[in-house]
Design a protein around this nucleic acid. Sequence first.
DNA 1: GTCTATAGAACGATAGAC
DNA 2: GTCTATCGTTCTATAGAC
Lengths: 202, 202
Amino acid sequence: MKEIPKKPRLSRAEAKARTREELLKAARVVFARYGYHGTSLDMVAEAAGYTKGAVYANFSGKEDLYLALLDNNLSTGDSELEELIISGVSFGTVSDKITENFYTELEDDRDWAALTVEFFAHAMRNETIRTKLTERIRLAQDYYTSCLEKRIAATGAELPMSVEQTATTLFVFSNALTLLALLDPQPELPGISARMLKMLLG
Amino acid sequence: MKEIPKKPRLSRAEAKARTREELLKAARVVFARYGYHGTSLDMVAEAAGYTKGAVYANFSGKEDLYLALLDNNLSTGDSELEELIISGVSFGTVSDKITENFYTELEDDRDWAALTVEFFAHAMRNETIRTKLTERIRLAQDYYTSCLEKRIAATGAELPMSVEQTATTLFVFSNALTLLALLDPQPELPGISARMLKMLLG
DNA sequence: GTCTATAGAACGATAGAC
DNA sequence: GTCTATCGTTCTATAGAC
């Protein structure tokens, strides 16, 4: 008689890793939808098909879960802006690209942006969390810096400030303008964005 | 015998209105200190010298109380930045002033800033509130615009964009940089602020 | 048999409603 | 002031991997 093929059982470590990934995946959806305060760990666990026990077996608590989520997101250089900066195309092209796509995919990020703002406010009132969020923001700034350095190497562009200062300015301004656009989609915002990029990227 | 002057009794409507004002006054302090989520109606009532019953007699709930606070809060052009813009002094002076005072009084606004960020996040998820906040932001942008126009009239400065665009940029950037500074007081931020002002004020 | 990831109950605190 | 609901966290029991 032919043997029924065995599906190899997951090792304990593999099972735990998978659980963690599924929890993170569920957390991304639930947090984005209901916000930080509006999300309970029960909701996350249920969405992932587990219970709170699984959450606490993999994360030290709610904050830790969110920060793990944030790290996951930061590690994927997702924004189109950075690619444009790196790519070394002329700022005319950069501007056109930005203006053209400004509002197209903005709405997809609405929930995540709201979540980010909410956690930012949370962090402003708590030393421990503030420190942890600060570390992540510094990493993001560093990433912008490295993008600019690549651009300089490729095009020899001259910046209006030091690379770090320009990177910080780009980071602050682009994020803030995105937030304003999500709250109030004024038609002038893409033009402002393009103009500022022109001034900053040299 | 001389009559003791009567202190006219408050009518019921007057008493209720006074209670409402005192609750709002207390709410402003408590909300700023503990944030929207961190504030309980008990705390507000107690700070005003009432009980929760008074709150529910005057507002339909926490959100309504907050919205009343928002409506009550007329934007008083408080920021030093606007005065500097209007005053028509050279950007060198403006920059020096900004750099010099950048962190001095920033900490005083921490609670208000955190509350604003928290409310912004809230507004991003609620159509009604978003509309109300949008109106206020437009007013703030208009105020910046009028400041810039006064500056232009006084100095004939040339801006890198239209007055409205420059005003929006100033508004977005200065607020965002303030928030970053409150979260993570990097020493480069004042310099960035000064440099950006120089670029924007012409 | 031992260890541990997870389920699920229990706890303590706190909120908003009325 | 009470009442109910809910949340984050902790604790314990258990099933399954080793």
